Amino acid sequence: MDPASDAVRIGVVSDTHGLLRPEVPPLLEGCDLILHAGDVGDPAILTSLEGLAPTRAVRGNVDGGPLRALPLTEAVEVAGHLIYMVHIPEDLDLDPVAAGVSVVIHGHTHRPRAERIDGVLHLNPGSIGPRRFSLPVTFAFLRLFPGGVEWEHVGLGL
């Protein structure tokens, strides 16, 4: 049996700041779950994402109004893996290794990042919202399967 055939495909986005680029939804179609790592900027973005797949989000530092109801952190268990989301990486409020976390997802910096620290993947999908400085416009895919985690950053080439 191929363990990758049992993979769960997750779209990971962050820092939309009120802009869901039209190129993004078709790319997220077919995901089992979408995770938004904060700075949503407009509740309509979460509604749009929810139309593609179940969506979970955390509150970013610019999320006011109705978005203040979003949690600052969120733990999501998927395919035997614990994913922990926080917008600002320095606000990580637990020891991921001690908590049994497989993946920490964050945003805030708008910089794509994938780094393993003590066996835990720390993933920033980058930003798909308004361009910031000369940073690329990116999001990420996670593939979770028994015994493994794979990721891929996707650049929109904008």
Rank of each mutant, 00 (worst) to 15 (best):
residue 132 R to P: 04
residue 105 I to G: 09
residue 88 I to N: 11
residue 93 D to W: 08
residue 90 E to D: 08
residue 94 L to D: 11
residue 4 A to Y: 06
residue 85 M to L: 14
residue 18 G to W: 12
residue 83 I to D: 00
residue 57 A to Q: 05
residue 33 L to G: 14
residue 46 L to M: 03
residue 119 G to V: 13
residue 88 I to Y: 09
residue 78 V to G: 12
residue 114 A to K: 13
residue 22 P to G: 00
residue 14 S to C: 01
residue 15 D to W: 13
residue 11 G to S: 08
residue 41 G to L: 08
residue 113 R to P: 00
residue 101 V to E: 08
residue 122 H to L: 13
residue 21 R to C: 02
residue 117 I to E: 08
residue 86 V to K: 10
residue 78 V to T: 15
residue 129 G to A: 13
residue 38 G to K: 02
residue 68 R to N: 00
residue 82 L to P: 00
residue 35 L to K: 03
residue 137 V to Y: 00
residue 63 D to P: 09
residue 153 H to I: 14
residue 45 I to C: 09
residue 100 G to W: 06
residue 76 V to Y: 12
residue 149 V to W: 13
residue 56 R to F: 13
residue 84 Y to S: 07
residue 59 R to L: 02
residue 68 R to K: 00
residue 25 P to R: 01
residue 85 M to Y: 07
residue 150 E to F: 14
residue 145 F to N: 00
residue 47 T to D: 04
residue 44 A to L: 13
residue 95 D to W: 03
residue 27 L to G: 06
residue 28 L to A: 05
residue 70 L to E: 00
residue 7 A to E: 15
residue 82 L to R: 15
residue 142 L to K: 14
residue 83 I to E: 01
residue 77 E to C: 10
residue 148 G to L: 10
residue 96 P to Y: 11
residue 111 R to W: 02
residue 39 D to W: 04
residue 34 I to R: 00
residue 52 L to S: 07
residue 129 G to S: 10
residue 85 M to V: 05
residue 112 P to K: 03
residue 142 L to S: 14
residue 83 I to P: 00
residue 44 A to E: 15
residue 15 D to F: 15
residue 54 P to L: 07
residue 71 P to G: 08
residue 18 G to K: 14
residue 128 I to C: 14
residue 129 G to I: 07
residue 80 G to P: 05
residue 53 A to L: 09
residue 92 L to A: 06
residue 43 P to D: 02
residue 42 D to F: 03
residue 142 L to W: 12
residue 24 V to G: 03
residue 115 E to N: 08
residue 65 G to F: 03
residue 123 L to V: 12
residue 32 D to G: 15
residue 111 R to E: 05
residue 4 A to S: 01
residue 130 P to R: 14
residue 72 L to F: 02
residue 31 C to M: 12
residue 57 A to S: 10
residue 96 P to V: 10
residue 63 D to G: 06
residue 34 I to F: 02
residue 155 G to I: 00
residue 116 R to F: 15
residue 49 L to Y: 11
residue 87 H to S: 09
residue 131 R to N: 00
residue 129 G to Q: 11
residue 72 L to Q: 06
residue 17 H to W: 10
residue 108 H to W: 08
residue 85 M to E: 10
residue 35 L to F: 08
residue 35 L to M: 09
residue 100 G to S: 05
residue 141 F to C: 04
residue 146 P to F: 12
residue 67 L to W: 04
residue 34 I to L: 05
residue 140 A to W: 09
residue 104 V to C: 06
residue 62 V to L: 10
residue 140 A to Y: 10
residue 158 L to T: 07
residue 83 I to F: 02
residue 137 V to F: 00
residue 105 I to H: 11
residue 22 P to H: 03
residue 27 L to D: 05
residue 82 L to K: 15
residue 114 A to E: 09
residue 80 G to C: 01
residue 94 L to P: 05
residue 134 S to D: 12
residue 21 R to Y: 03
residue 16 T to N: 10
residue 79 A to Y: 05
residue 130 P to N: 12
residue 112 P to V: 12
residue 148 G to Y: 12
residue 152 E to D: 10
residue 53 A to N: 09
residue 105 I to P: 02
residue 27 L to Y: 05
residue 39 D to N: 14
residue 127 S to A: 14
residue 100 G to I: 07
residue 114 A to L: 07
residue 138 T to C: 15
residue 138 T to F: 12
residue 25 P to W: 02
residue 32 D to M: 13
residue 126 G to D: 13
residue 44 A to S: 15
residue 68 R to E: 02
residue 126 G to S: 11
residue 83 I to T: 05
residue 29 E to A: 08
residue 139 F to A: 06
